[in-house]
Design a protein around this nucleic acid. Structure first.
Length: 326
DNA sequence: CGTCGTGA
DNA sequence: TCACGACGG
């Protein structure tokens, strides 16, 4: 599962947020939400985010806190939700499900033995994105007029496709997969405070003097979300081997190693299930009052929790409105 | 996913 | 120098 190995292969540079003004970014919704759920929830009481029915709606707080970052920088996000999971990934998803169950079991044990700190820590690992979380996030986006769409399969693949055909300026995801899926430019760290990172496919290929196909083969050797990779192949060895032997088949042949499902995973990265059928209205015109009512009245979130976020959204709208006149 | 200690 | 595994968040 050495996905972060790609970081050491990729050319990544910091970009000032204000240099992104006026751009459009296709954000992998699952990633983005996950980020807020694991951070936001961890440091606050459960009761704030749980409705009377026991539904977890921490995502609503996360969305309200996360959107201002885009608005304030005059960056338009298009959120891309995951569709069906491919066969290849289902193995990986299954493994993660098992890991979650193990973590949940340990969490319960910790809770029973009165170790609340340990229980809270393990709780962060058991967070998962429920159907309710997806539905209520869409509901809030509707009221805030934030554009979103459904991917046929992997959200990262759809984001990468939209960036590749030029319908958006960047893909946005914390994962490195978007580059393997062919996104020319990927923005990372859209959730945290500081400046984002820009991951550049072309510069990465130039740096190593390899083709895009070879980059995918490098990823295959190191391991991706869809395959195991080969033990002993990290960033350096994988790049060197692929350059030396041309492609992953050459490496398998020369080094006497085996990459499982190499042909199928390759094909997935080259030609993933994506759609061109979307109609994005990028003219965002939020109904703040409706959004507030949705979060606090419909879902019972404490008004205090989202007040600051809504304030920032409102202010950023006034700000961009003024900018338009100057 | 990032960091850091370990060991080849 | 590089890769791996464990652990913290």
């Amino acid at each position: 599962m050495g996905n972060a190995d790609l970081r050491d292969v990729a050319v990544i540079e910091d970009v000032p947020f204000d240099s992104l003004s006026g751009s459009v970014v296709a954000v992998d919704a699952h990633n983005w939400l996950y980020r807020y759920l694991t951070t936001t929830v961890k440091f606050t009481a459960d009761s704030v985010y749980t409705t009377d029915d026991g539904e977890e709606v921490a995502n609503l707080v996360g969305v309200v806190q996360g959107l201002p970052k885009f608005f304030e920088a005059d960056v338009t996000p298009v959120f891309v939700f995951d569709g069906g999971v491919t066969d290849l990934k289902s193995d990986e998803v299954e493994r993660r499900r098992e890991q979650r169950e193990k973590a949940e079991q340990r969490r319960q044990e910790a809770e029973e033995s009165g170790d609340s700190v340990e229980a809270a820590r393990l709780d962060a690992r058991t967070q998962r994105l429920t159907d309710t979380i997806h539905e209520t996030t869409r509901g809030l986006f509707d009221r805030l007029d934030v554009p979103y769409m459904e991917a046929p399969a992997e959200g990262e693949a759809q984001c990468a496709h939209m960036a590749a055909v030029g319908d958006v300026d960047y893909a946005g995801s914390e994962d490195y997969d978007t580059m393997t899926f062919g996104s020319p430019l990927t923005l990372r760290q859209l959730t945290s405070k500081g400046d984002p990172e820009l991951m550049d496919l072309q510069k990465t290929l130039e740096k190593h003097e390899i083709t895009y196909e070879q980059l995918v083969d490098v990823a295959l050797l190191m391991g991706t979300d869809f395959n195991e990779g080969v033990s002993g192949y990290g960033p350096k060895t994988a790049v060197k081997a692929v350059k030396e032997h041309g492609d992953v088949w050459g490496v398998m042949d020369a080094d006497d190693v085996y990459v499982e499902n190499a042909d199928r995973v390759r094909e997935l990265f080259f030609d993933p299930p994506v759609t061109d059928e979307y109609d994005l209205d990028l003219d965002v015109d939020p109904d703040i009052d409706a959004a507030k009512r949705y979060v606090t009245e419909t879902w019972g979130v404490d008004a205090d929790e989202v007040e600051r976020g809504f304030e920032r959204i409102e202010d950023s709208l006034v700000q961009t409105g003024l900018d338009d006149w100057t």
